[in-house]
Design a protein around this nucleic acid. Structure first.
Length: 569
RNA sequence: CGGGGCGUAGCGCAGCCUGGCAGCGCGCCUGCUUUGGGAGCAGGAUGUCGCAGGUUCGAAUCCUGCCGCCCCGACCA
C-alpha cells in the first residue's frame, strides 16, 4: 500500500484517557478509535492484525479437526430460559426487545445456540464427536470496561464447542484444544502459560486458562519455581500443614480483654501488641441464605472461590451487619468462634495453632489464648485461603511465585451441564439415550492483539512479531523530491508487491524523521531505507524493528533478503 | 452501585477560584526555504466552552439538574 493513500491516522501525543501501553499505542498507531464506553472501531491497520490472528486461529482449529460455523449474534430469550441463564446471567447480558415485544439478548457466548443446533441435528453416537467453532463479535455489558480493548464490552472472540459420546472422548477433545491453543499462542509470538483454573462444581483439572505474562494484566497467576505446577489465584491450592502440627506449647487460660473500638486485624495487633499470624479472623458468610463462620489466620485472606466450591452452594456473600449481630451477638468487628451460633469452618493453617487471639462476640472485647479443640471444638478444616508468594508448592514443595497475566484463552470441560438442561441427547451403541458430553473453548481475539502489544513494545512504539504484523516491510524513501530516490523506492515497491511481500511504501512528502517515527510507532518488523547515501553504491538499508540491527543490502537482492527475513521467523 | 477526577478547536491542555473580546502547543490549509530520527519563516482556517435550566446588565467562569468519559472499589456462569 502507498502510505499517502492509507487511512492511518497516527498521533504524536498520547490520548489522556488511555492508561496502559497497548491502549495508548493502538490509539496512537491508528489501529482503533473509541465509539462509546467499551466499544471500539477497528481501523485498517488494527483490523489487519485482527485478521492475522484470526487466520492463525482458523488454521490451528481446522488442523485440530474443528469446523467453522457462524451463529446468530441476536438470540431469543426462550433459549436462555431453557438453560436457566436468562435469570442467572445478570446484568452482563444485554437484553433487547423487538417490535413484537419479544425478548432477545445480544450473545455474550453461544452455549445455548450451539446446543440447540446440535441436539436437533445429531441423533446417534455415529455422528460424534463433533467440534464446531466460530469467530464472532460478542457483547458483554461489563460493569466497568477498561484498558481499551483489553476489557471491552464488544469484542472479538473465537468460541468452540465439542460434543462427545464418552468421557474418554471428551477428554481427548479437550486435549486437542489444549494442544491447539499452545500452537496458536506460540505462533502469535506470545510468552504465555496455561494455568489450572477453577472449574466450579465439575471438579478435576478440566479447565485451563491461557495467560500471557504482563505486569499490566488483571489476573494473578501462580506458578511453582521448581515444577510445572501453574494455576490461577482462585484455583491455586495451598499446601496442607501436617495434621495437628502443634508446637507443643501449653494451652493458656482464656482471657477476655477490653478492646474499645478495635476492629480490624491491624488495630487488634497494634492494641494487643501481637503479630497478625497470632490472630484469627472470623468472617460470617451467607451461603445460600445460611450463615457460616469462616476462620482464617490474621495474615491470610479467604479465597471465596475455594470456599464456594467447598460448600457447594449457589450463592455466597459476606453477611450484612444484622446477620452478624444475630449470629455473634455483637456488631461487626468483634466476631469470634467461641459460642457462635452457626457452622464453623477453619482454614488448614489453623490446625495446630495455639493461644491465638479471636473476637469476643461482644462489643469492644477480644479473647486471648484461644485453642480450637478446647474452646470451640471445630474439626472442620479445609483449604480456604488465598495462596501467597513464597508459599510451598502443593505438588512438589518448591517455592510459589505469583506474577500478573492477561487471560487470552480458556478451555473448559462442560460435561453435561447444558446438554441436560437443554436435553441434547444421542442414541448410544447400546441403544440407550444419553446426554452429550460437552466442552467449550474460547480465545479473545482482540484481547490477544492487545496482550501482544503489552508484551512487545518500546518507547518508540509497537514491535510486531512477523506472524501477526499488519505489514512485513515499510519502504522509507528519505526524500521524495529527489528523483533518483523516489524512482528507486517505487521500483523496489513494485518488485516487493510482485514477490508477494506485504509492504507499505511511505511515499508521503514528509521529512525522514517523521517517516522513521511513524514506522517505529506502527511497529512494522522490517524497514527499508532508500537514501542517497546507499544509492551511491547501489544499496539500501534494512533495519529490523525488534533488534535494531541494520544491514546494507544491494538493491538487486533486496527482495530476496526481505523474503528470507520474513520466512526466517 | 459507592468514592475520586474530568468534559473548552481534530489531539494535548490553559482560562473558572475573583463573571467582562475564547486562548496556547501540536495537527490542518497556502507559499517560500529545508530534507537520514517528529524542520524554519510568513500567512490562514477551525468552537453548541458536554446538555438543560437558573442567578446576573453580562456566564466557559456562580447555582441546580442531567448526560458522557477516566481511575479506584464492589461485582464478574
Amino acid at each position: 500500500m502507498r502510505y499517502s493513500e492509507m487511512f492511518l491516522p497516527t498521533t504524536k501525543e498520547t490520548p489522556s484517557d488511555a492508561e496502559i501501553a497497548s491502549h495508548q499505542l493502538m490509539l496512537r498507531a491508528g489501529m482503533i478509535r473509541k465509539l462509546a464506553g467499551g466499544i471500539y472501531s477497528y481501523l485498517p491497520l488494527g483490523y489487519r492484525v485482527i485478521r492475522k490472528v484470526e487466520n492463525i486461529v482458523r488454521e490451528e482449529m481446522n488442523r485440530a479437526g474443528a469446523q467453522e460455523v457462524l451463529l446468530p449474534a441476536v438470540q431469543p430469550a426462550e433459549l436462555w430460559m431453557e438453560s436457566g441463564r436468562w435469570n442467572m446471567y445478570g446484568k452482563e447480558l444485554l437484553r433487547v426487545r423487538d417490535r413484537h415485544n419479544r425478548d432477545y439478548c445480544i450473545g455474550p457466548t453461544h452455549e445455548e445456540v450451539i446446543t440447540a443446533l446440535v441436539r436437533d441435528e445429531i441423533q446417534t453416537y455415529r455422528q460424534l464427536p463433533r467440534n464446531l467453532y466460530q469467530i464472532q463479535t460478542k457483547f458483554r455489558d461489563e460493569i466497568r470496561p477498561r484498558f481499551g480493548i483489553m476489557r471491552s464490552r464488544e469484542f472479538g472472540m473465537k468460541d468452540a464447542y465439542s460434543f462427545d459420546a464418552t468421557e474418554e472422548g471428551a477428554e481427548e477433545s479437550y486435549r486437542k484444544m489444549f494442544d491447539a491453543y499452545n500452537r496458536i499462542f506460540t505462533r502469535c509470538g506470545l510468552h504465555f502459560r496455561p494455568v489450572e483454573a477453577d472449574s466450579g462444581n465439575i471438579g478435576g483439572s478440566f479447565s485451563h486458562e491461557f495467560m500471557v505474562t504482563a505486569d499490566s494484566g488483571e489476573d494473578a497467576m501462580v506458578h511453582c519455581t521448581s515444577c510445572q505446577y501453574a494455576a490461577n489465584l482462585e484455583k491455586a491450592e495451598c499446601p496442607r500443614p501436617k495434621e495437628g502440627a502443634s508446637q507443643g506449647a501449653e494451652c493458656l487460660p482464656l482471657e477476655e480483654v477490653h478492646t474499645p473500638d478495635v476492629r480490624t486485624i491491624e488495630e487488634v495487633c497494634a492494641y494487643l501488641d501481637v503479630a497478625p499470624r497470632d490472630v484469627v479472623k472470623t468472617m460470617i458468610f451467607m451461603c445460600d441464605a445460611k450463615p457460616v463462620a469462616v476462620l482464617v489466620r490474621g495474615d491470610e485472606e479467604i479465597n471465596e472461590a475455594k470456599l464456594k466450591n467447598y460448600l457447594g452452594c449457589d450463592s455466597l456473600e459476606l453477611s450484612m451487619d444484622d446477620t452478624i449481630l444475630e449470629v455473634t451477638g455483637s456488631p461487626r468487628g468483634f466476631a469470634g468462634p467461641i459460642g457462635i451460633k452457626c457452622r464453623i469452618i477453619a482454614d488448614h493453617s489453623l490446625n495446630g495453632m495455639e493461644n491465638f487471639v479471636v473476637g469476643g462476640n461482644r462489643e469492644d472485647y477480644h479473647i486471648k489464648n484461644c485453642n480450637s479443640t478446647r474452646d470451640f471444638g471445630t474439626s472442620e478444616y479445609a483449604d480456604l485461603r488465598v495462596i501467597r508468594e513464597g508459599d510451598m508448592c502443593p505438588r512438589c514443595g518448591g517455592e510459589i511465585s505469583i506474577v500478573r497475566g492477561i487471560e487470552v484463552g480458556h478451555v473448559f470441560k462442560l460435561g453435561t451441564k447444558y446438554s441436560k438442561a437443554m436435553n441434547a441427547t444421542f442414541l448410544d451403541r447400546d441403544g440407550k439415550e444419553k446426554h452429550m458430553i460437552m466442552g467449550c473453548y474460547g480465545i479473545g481475539i482482540s484481547r490477544t492483539v492487545a496482550a501482544c502489544i503489552e508484551q512487545s513494545h518500546d518507547g518508540d512504539g509497537i514491535i510486531w512479531p512477523m506472524s501477526i504484523a499488519p505489514f512485513h516491510v515499510i519502504i522509507t524513501p528519505v526524500n521524495m523530491k529527489d528523483e533518483q530516490i523516489s524512482r528507486a523506492a517505487e521500483e523496489m515497491y513494485e518488485r516487493f508487491v510482485a514477490d508477494g511481500i506485504e509492504v507499505i511504501l511511505d511515499d508521503r512528502d514528509e521529512r525522514a524523521g517523521v517517516k522513521f517515527k511513524d514506522a517505529d510507532l506502527i511497529g512494522v518488523p522490517l524497514r527499508v531505507t532508500v537514501g542517497s547515501r546507499g544509492l551511491a553504491d547501489g544499496t539500501v538499508e534494512v533495519k529490523f524493528r525488534q533488534s535494531g540491527k541494520v544491514d546494507k543490502i544491494p538493491i538487486s537482492t533486496a527482495s530476496d533478503f526481505v523474503t528470507g527475513a520474513i520466512t526466517d521467523v
